[in-house]
């Protein structure tokens, strides 16, 4: 069975370096609701590939700089 992936993100940091962009501001940029951005940032929701790319584009960075992935149990 495939091992579980632990997906984390740097959205909070990226927002800070983007002139303290608000969650609402990011939501408007990517066409999502503020609640979705809150959930993604808190790791409660894993976005679709499309939304993930939109978030990366909004910060003008590569997707790997926004999302990190670790295979559980392989520290």
């Amino acid at each position: 069975m495939a091992k579980k992936l632990n997906i984390t993100n740097n959205i909070r940091t990226l927002r800070f370096f983007a002139n303290e962009m608000t969650q609402q501001g990011l939501a408007e940029k990517v066409g999502a609701s503020r609640q979705t951005i809150v959930a993604v940032e808190a790791g409660k929701y894993t976005p679709s590939l499309e939304l993930a790319f939109r978030i990366a584009i909004a910060f003008d960075v590569e997707i790997q700089e926004v999302f990190n992935c670790e295979i559980e149990g392989e520290g």
């Binding site: 408007e28 066409g31 999502a32 609701s33 929701y45 976005p47 499309e50 939304l51």
Partner: peptide, 12 residues
């Protein structure tokens, strides 16, 4: 409009 936006998480 921003408040009432429905996106992929809502659909999921």
């Amino acid at each position: 409009q921003n408040e009432m936006v429905t996106d992929e998480m809502d659909k999921m």
